[in-house]
Simulated assay, not measured.
Amino acid sequence: MPAVKRATHAFVLISLTGVACLLSPAVAYADKTPPGGGGIGASGNSTPGGTLSATAGGVVYDHSKNGSGSAVGPLTPVGNWTPPACWYAPKYSPAEFKAYVEPIWNADSTGSSWDASQRDRYVNGKPYTNFNLNKADKGYWWDSYVDKSFPPGWDACNKPYFWVDKGAPPPADVPEAITPEILAKLAYAEIRVPATQVTLKPDGATKVNLPTWAWLDKSDFHPVSVTASVPALNISATTTATPASLKLDPGTADATLFPASGECPINADGSIGTPYEAGSADKTPPCGVTYRRATNGTPYTLKATVTWKIRWTGTGNGGDDLPDGTFGQNQQVTVQEIQAVNR
């Protein structure tokens, strides 16, 4: 309940329609419907009663071009970069805002002084008058939203509710106000990429001093994207992750990587590495590993990590690179002590 959290962070006991409810100092979380069942929805259009359909944080996600299935996971950004912790976006129509805050004030549990200051601000013209009911369908009340990964009660965006006319920019002193760039960063956190189960040859078990070829087919590895939008503001951004390279970690120091860095670049056709062909057993693979010591009951853990290049495009010809992301998977490799190689 934002009106309370910005005052004392106290718990509030109020009665709505005859039922006593304990309201804690709440935060508008991105994955929850706004308190009172309202908020900005996909259409952004007011009903005759002035209520807007609800959605998460005013942000709508299109995951139709994202990675899918059980073998997908989120990217780990390279460096200390993280998606936005909180942001401001449209939340209430005038009628909906009035219906939400008046019961809080009438409960007289936040203190008469606080309640009076709120009535002055939103009802008595200091600076807003009567919840801006005379401006129905001409704008929205904005509030903060906190990323769902942050703990309850955390809120660095702690400005009071503010009004923004449709088509007008938010106040200049609100740097966290939703923009296409912020949408792009939120979409980054929604991206899911396929697991990096590389094809190995020999598969199952390889041999000491025998090159093991590794590759990823382009049909299994392709760009994915997520689009985030705020329909009420007619803004959107699409964040795209494109596979760029494969990094091999053999799981032991007794191994030689190809190339020596273990970094296998992406090929022109979108694949990584080269599939093994008969007769290539003694050739050097463009992407692979040669183990120099056999396993002794416990397989080596080969980790294959793909680096993804991230770029966004959005409303108003916006766009730029975002930090690379990585996603890896472990594979068990058994190495047998057989010196001879049959061709």
Rank of each mutant, 00 (worst) to 15 (best):
C287P: 04
P250E: 02
P231F: 07
H222Y: 15
L248F: 11
P223G: 10
K218L: 01
A241W: 05
G262V: 07
L216S: 04
A253M: 07
T284P: 03
N234Q: 14
P243H: 09
T284D: 05
L233S: 00
S225A: 14
A237M: 08
V230Q: 11
K218N: 06
A278N: 13
A281E: 15
K247G: 03
G270E: 05
S229H: 02
W215A: 08
T256E: 14
T284N: 08
G262L: 07
T242A: 10
L248P: 09
T239W: 12
I235Q: 02
P265G: 09
A237Y: 11
A253E: 14
I266N: 04
C287D: 02
L246H: 10
G273R: 13
L216D: 00
D217C: 00
T239K: 06
T238Y: 10
G270S: 07
N267M: 00
S280Q: 15
P286Y: 00
T252P: 07
E263L: 15
S261L: 10
P259T: 10
T242K: 12
T242S: 14
G270A: 04
L248S: 07
T284V: 15
L248R: 12
Y276K: 09
S236K: 14
A255L: 10
I266H: 02
P259W: 08
A241Y: 06
D249Y: 09
A237K: 08
D217S: 15
T227S: 06
P223W: 13
P286M: 11
V224L: 05
T240A: 01
D249T: 15
T252K: 08
I266M: 15
N267K: 14
S229K: 13
I266P: 03
T242Q: 06
N267Q: 13
D269Q: 00
C264Y: 11
S236E: 13
P259I: 11
G262R: 10
T227K: 13
T227Y: 07
K218T: 03
P265S: 08
A260F: 05
P223Y: 13
N267I: 00
G279F: 01
C287K: 13
